[in-house]
Amino acid sequence: DVAEQLTPVLLDSPREESLQLVSELKDSSGSCAVDVSTVWWEAAGCRELRVVTASESAVSLWKPLAPNCWGKVYTWRLEEVPVIQIVPLPNTCNLVCVALGELEIGEIRLLFYSSETDSFKHSLLKTGNIKAVVGLKDWRLVSSSRTMQEQQVEMVLLSETGGSKDRQTLMPPEETVTAFAEVEGMREALVGTTAGNSVVVWNLKTGQLLRKMHIGYSYPASICHRAYSDSGLLFVVLSHPHAKESESCGSLAFRVVAFNPCTGRSTGVTFSCLPPGRAGRQYLEGDVWDTAGAAVLMSGAVAVWDLLRGQCTAVLPPDPIGHWALARWATSGARLLAGRRDGTVHLYRY
């Protein structure tokens, strides 16, 4: 650990310049931060991007008060079950989704403002042994849950009042789904990765499981982050949290793989790596927005890549006060949130 702390970030070209610090949020509650995200919020006819921070027992909504100044609007107390993560809901408004549980997700809750009672509330959306969850555009949420006998994959259409308008069951694959990603530009398509290292494709409208395509054995335990359909191919952004350092590439963070859904064949398109020379596991966790990837590294730095070029474009060195622990793209894009465990969040323009 000491060696990790003292090792500088060995990158020649990428620097902080492509990330411009916009503002800092400081949480004085003293609780350990577990996640950070953004949400569109409309109040009194004004729609603005707000920041959401989560500790194990509370989720706070932050509002921009003035340039470089943020204030807490409200804190939801969730003290019975620990918060594990915030689930971003792209292009929704006035709704925050959180996953809670002990080691694994046991419940999903919606946090919202009720104009009927003029108060902030939260409601239980789903319980179970939940393995993966993703928020999709247009107020949709997909999750997979597992019982001893079977796996259930379900899409829920969310309502502004913290409930569900509709539910659609998706055909489960035999293997456990480990992650979901929406397909850019194809509203009814959804991809997932499985514990058997396959990519699966669903039709969200019909619930059909359209295709299962094996990724290969070179990069086990792949996690999907994003997908794009173009020219008859399905491009999937994968991360490989358990990938070993290789001589040719160094430490791999993200990979873009092109799949032909008709044949199930695939080929690697780009690899986003750190330069070789630093042994050990680099990648702790990451997030993808459009074609930009961000990851927190073991050194406490945050690295950003252009995934289409496979190039590292920016690095936030470990902060002398504390290592970066969280890196998330804002739902609006072009903004990166970097968070420390002490609750401090830096908002960068990218």
Binding site: N203, T206, L233, P261, C262, T263, V269
Partner: peptide, 23 residues
């Protein structure tokens, strides 16, 4: 990549797979 690597490509793969897959 070339077409030979990935096999024949269809721009309407989503519709075609939806028509073929079990309901």
């Amino acid at each position: 990549c070339s077409e030979s690597d990935l096999g024949p490509i269809s721009l309407s793969w989503f519709e075609e797979l939806s028509a073929e897959a079990p309901p």
